[in-house]
């Protein structure tokens, strides 16, 4: 959003809002009843044994919690924007850790398996996604051009392709390609099948992104190029595509990030990627949560890295034009 130069009062600094918020928060904490948690123990000097403290204990605990919550909000509201963002991120992350902690995780188990998860699982995930992304991009360029061409065959093939591959669940495509291609005489192993499914599926989505990107370039650019005597291929390569890249990059980045996680669907083919190992490594010792949370953190970290790269590319193209 584009910021106005006149700043409104912060909602938090209006007494009515503050009181309303406090009451709501108090009600929520009261409803959820935190008496039997670490907070209750902490307040036992006031409320006595948490187990027997009854409504009084419940009220005291929720009151203290809501005061802390609101004071925290107030304190943050006085900080500068950047600091605010940092603090809120940090606090939310702590909450996430607390959530993970509540599973009674065995850290030594994670330690013993994380090497394998990264060296085998993460590596395979990145490898499959990276190859698929490259192929999907190539498909998307060809598909978008075909969809915009006035060649009936090209248009029909491209639109059939996008319709089919956007119309089927990715998992179904994975099965169809793995089981179906050999029927047609193409023996493909699990990993190439997975890559084919991911590339075709994401190629279809990205075809639409690329098409929209190309179409968003004003027709005056085509006319000026034609008036100079440029042929279509040259116009696309030198005039239209370079201008559509800044438009294409953000949604394409989202596709990359989504694909990274959708690559887990190829685990049904027995590919030992991150999600597959997350589901299997904890099985013998019945320590699933450890592995799932570890995989969660790895996926998340990877996504954050990708988001940073995407922001960089976007910034680069914004400077250029």
């Amino acid at each position: 959003m584009f910021v106005d130069t006149v700043v409104e009062d912060k909602a938090l600094h209006k007494p009515a809002f503050l009181i309303g918020l406090s009451v709501t928060v108090l009600a929520i904490f009261f409803a959820f009843n935190f008496t039997n948690t670490i907070f209750g123990e902490f307040l036992s000097p006031v409320i006595g044994n948490p187990e027997e403290s009854g409504l009084f204990g419940r009220f005291v605990v929720s009151f203290v919690l809501s005061v802390i919550f609101v004071l925290n909000l107030l304190a943050i509201s006085f900080a500068r924007l950047k600091i605010q963002i940092l603090i809120v991120w940090f606090e939310l992350f702590l909450l996430f850790l607390a959530f993970a902690y509540s599973f009674d995780l065995k850290l030594s188990f994670i330690q013993s398996r994380i090497g394998l998860m990264i060296s085998k699982g993460l590596f395979t995930t990145i490898y499959i996604s990276a190859v698929s992304i490259v192929i999907a991009t190539a498909i998307a360029i060809v598909g978008a051009i075909a969809k915009l061409s006035n060649n009936g065959f090209a248009y029909a093939i491209a639109s059939f392709y996008t319709s089919l591959f956007r119309g089927l669940p990715l998992l179904l495509q994975v099965y169809l390609i793995y089981k179906g291609l050999p029927q047609l005489g193409f023996m493909v192993d699990a990993i190439p099948s997975g890559i084919a499914a991911l590339s075709l599926c994401y190629g279809a989505y990205m075809t639409e992104i690329f098409r929209a990107g190309i179409q968003s370039i004003p027709k005056g650019q085509w006319e000026a190029s034609r008036a100079l005597g440029f042929k279509s291929g040259l116009i696309l390569r030198k005039i239209i595509l370079p201008q559509s890249i800044p438009i294409i990059v953000p949604p394409t980045g989202n596709q990359f990030i989504a694909m990274l996680k959708d690559s887990s669907l190829v685990s049904v083919l027995g590919i030992w990627e991150l999600m597959y190992l997350a589901k299997t490594l904890g099985q013998r010792d019945f320590r699933h949560m450890e592995m799932l949370l570890t995989a969660a953190m790895i996926y998340w970290g990877l996504t954050i890295i990708l988001e940073m790269i995407q922001a960089r590319i976007e910034r680069k193209y914004q400077q250029k034009t």
Partner: peptide, 29 residues
């Protein structure tokens, strides 16, 4: 294309190539 190369056209809306510098716009053709 050959005919068009011999006929210059100037548009109401300029239609310069925004991703190229002024010099590159002129050198492109």
């Amino acid at each position: 294309d050959i005919v068009r190369q011999d006929i210059g056209m100037v548009f109401q809306g300029f239609n310069l190539f925004p991703h190229l510098t002024v010099l590159e716009n002129c050198m492109a053709g």
